[in-house]
C-alpha cells in the first residue's frame, strides 16, 4: 500500500533512474520520456477525487471516442471495381454494413449458419445474390473479404472449389424412380469463368478427386 504522500519518493526514484539509465541520456527519447514518467506519478498515487483537468481530459476522450469506422480493417489499395460508383441521389446513401441484430432464420441449418459471419449484413445480403453475382465477386475481388464471403455462400449452396482448374463445381443428385438399377443419378456441373461465363455440364470422363478440392 502506498503511503499517503509519495511525491517526494517519486521524485527521488526518477532522479535515480535518470542518473543510472542510459535511455535518459539519449536525446531522441526527450521530451517524450519525461512526459511518460509523469504518468507514473498518477499510477502510483491516483487522485482521490477527479481533478478538473482530469475530468476535462476524460470528457475530451469521450468526445473523440473511436467508433466502428475507426476500428475497421485498413485498406490503402482499392480494387478498381470496389470504388464507389456515382449513383442517383434517390438511392440510399447509408452504407450496406449497418449493424442489424435480427436473429438468424431458424430454418437455416447449414453448419456455416452459426459461424461468426452468419449474422453480418454482408453475408446476409450475399445469401440473396444469384450465382452470377457470387461468381463475379469471387473472380474479380481476389484476396478480399468480399471474395471470402462469396466463397462461403457458394459453399453453403453446395458448390466446391477446384484448386487445380480454379473452377467451382456442383454435384447434382437426381433421385431416380423406384425399380431402376440405381436409386440416384449423379451429374456434375462446373462454372466456366474463363470463356462462356456459364455453368456447364462436365463430360462423362470427369472424375471427382477429393484432394483437388479446397476444404472451405
Amino acid at each position: 500500500q502506498p503511503p499517503r504522500d509519495m511525491s517526494k519518493q517519486i521524485d527521488e526514484m526518477l532522479a535515480q533512474d535518470r542518473s543510472q539509465n542510459s535511455a535518459f541520456q539519449n536525446p531522441l527519447f526527450h521530451p517524450g520520456l519525461d512526459y511518460w514518467l509523469e504518468s507514473k506519478r498518477t499510477l502510483l498515487q491516483p487522485y482521490e477525487t477527479m481533478p478538473a483537468e482530469m475530468a476535462s481530459q476524460l470528457e475530451s476522450s469521450l468526445l473523440n471516442c473511436p467508433d466502428s469506422l475507426d476500428a475497421d480493417t485498413p485498406h490503402l489499395y482499392h480494387n478498381v471495381l470496389s470504388l464507389p460508383h456515382p449513383t442517383s441521389i434517390f438511392f440510399p446513401n447509408e452504407p450496406i454494413r449497418l449493424v442489424s441484430n435480427e436473429p438468424v432464420d431458424p430454418t437455416k441449418t447449414h453448419p456455416k449458419h452459426n459461424d461468426i459471419y452468419s449474422r453480418t449484413s454482408l453475408a446476409r445480403i450475399m445469401s440473396k445474390f444469384d450465382l452470377d453475382t457470387l461468381f463475379f465477386i469471387f473472380y474479380h475481388y481476389q484476396g478480399t473479404y468480399e471474395q471470402f464471403l462469396s466463397a462461403r455462400e457458394l459453399s453453403i449452396r453446395g458448390w466446391q472449389f477446384n484448386k487445380v482448374n480454379r473452377c467451382w463445381f456442383y454435384k447434382e443428385v437426381e433421385k431416380l424412380p423406384p425399380g431402376m438399377e440405381q436409386s440416384e443419378e449423379i451429374s456434375w456441373r462446373y462454372f466456366d469463368y474463363q470463356k462462356s461465363w456459364l455453368a456447364r455440364r462436365c463430360g462423362a470422363e470427369f472424375v471427382y478427386r477429393e484432394e483437388e478440392f479446397e476444404r472451405i
Binding site: 467508433d67 466502428s68 453480418t120 484448386k163
Partner: peptide
C-alpha cells in the same frame, strides 16, 4: 452509439 457500422472480421483466403 459508436457501433453503427459493421467491422470487417478476420477471414482467410486460401
Amino acid at each position: 452509439e459508436t457501433s453503427r457500422s459493421e467491422v470487417e472480421p478476420k477471414f482467410f483466403v486460401p
